[in-house]
């Protein structure tokens, strides 16, 4: 299970949400394990069935207003009941003043409580956005990701087959490198596969025989990108006479990462083959398919039509030859 420490969350979002910590920092070591939020109005009122206490608890105007409306004893009782649960952290919206018992009891329970000037709705949007990103499933693949005419092509294949060289060639032709050798794939909330590089490697690349080069310095900022949707995988394989390679494009192949399917092309390579031009072709062909033009299908229709016409010609010829 993925976890996010409250302290790390605070560091990431302190500025964006203008968060202020209301109690001691000892609750910062707790972990957030859920990407959803919860408004604990009913839990404060005493209805504890289905209380999703393991989510970040957002106290809006309603919750704070309710607590303030209670007598001091009832307020204390409600909060004590609330803090029996293992809550990751609490965020109060609209810069609401909270009853002094709240930070005190939160401290006793070891729960951090933050306050933000944002409205509950705005806070909810920004928080969900951030948590979706943080809790998105991700994996690392050995390959190179290049934006070719706006299409994210992920080159994979055995070590030393020439992924970096193809990427370099594409960059030289004006395309943009996202990452070489190590690509982190993340599945976003709407089932899109995003690829990015690593903070450390940036746009450095190893070219065998030359060493490590810096693509950004060499080709300028327009040769790089920080992230790109991965739209097709191109696996470079050693050419072997025994293998069958796709000849017509009738069958669309797919590869799955993190449960997301992306088109997959298996590309045999041998010396003298211009993989770069083929990569550009793959990208453009995908564009055509996205715009509804499937070349193989169009050709197939044209071929069928031509065959039909031929048959009709023969039939009409035979029609004139009465026996």
């Amino acid at each position: 299970m993925q976890t996010l420490q409250v302290g790390a969350f605070f560091q990431d979002m302190q500025q964006r949400l203008s968060l202020r910590l209301l109690n001691s920092p000892k609750g910062l070591v707790r972990d957030v394990t859920q990407k959803d939020l919860h408004r604990p109005g009913l839990a404060l009122a005493g209805f504890l069935d289905l209380f999703t206490y393991d989510r970040i608890q957002v106290l809006g105007n309603t919750e704070v207003g309710y607590l303030k409306s209670l007598s001091p004893e009832a307020q204390l009782e409600s909060l004590q009941r609330f803090f029996q649960f293992q809550i990751p952290c609490i965020i109060v919206s609209n810069s609401n003043d909270v009853p002094p018992d709240l930070p005190r009891l939160a401290d006793l329970a070891g729960v951090s409580i933050f306050v933000s000037p944002l409205s509950t709705t705005e806070l909810g949007h920004l928080l969900s956005d951030y948590l979706d990103h943080k809790f998105a499933p991700s994996t690392v693949v050995h390959g190179s990701l290049v934006d070719v005419y706006g299409t994210g092509l992920l080159f994979t294949g055995r070590s030393g087959i020439g992924k970096s060289e193809v990427s370099l060639d594409l960059v030289e032709r004006g395309h943009r490198l996202v990452s070489d050798d190590v690509v982190t794939l993340t599945r976003t909330a709407d089932n899109v596969l995003m690829g990015s590089g690593s903070e450390l490697l940036k746009h450095f690349m190893e070219i065998r025989g030359v060493g490590i080069i810096d693509i950004c310095r060499m080709f300028g900022v327009r040769a790089i990108r920080l992230q790109k949707r991965v739209e097709t995988e191109v696996e470079l394989v050693d050419w072997s006479g025994e293998h069958d390679y796709e000849r017509t494009g009738m069958e669309d192949a797919y590869q799955e990462y993190l449960g997301v399917q992306i088109p997959y092309v298996r590309l045999p390579i041998y010396p003298g083959k211009n993989v770069t031009v083929i990569a550009e072709t793959i990208a453009l062909n995908l564009h055509l398919k996205v715009y509804g033009w499937h070349p193989t299908k169009q050709f197939s229709a044209a071929l069928s039509e031509a065959m039909k016409n031929r048959t009709q010609q023969i039939e009409s010829y035979l029609e004139k030859d009465f026996e």
Binding site: V140, H142, S159, D180, D181, V182, L201, F204, M205, E206
Partner: peptide
């Protein structure tokens, strides 16, 4: 987890 045949990895 990285491929140890890749120096960058």
């Amino acid at each position: 987890r990285v491929n140890a045949k890749s120096i960058m990895g």
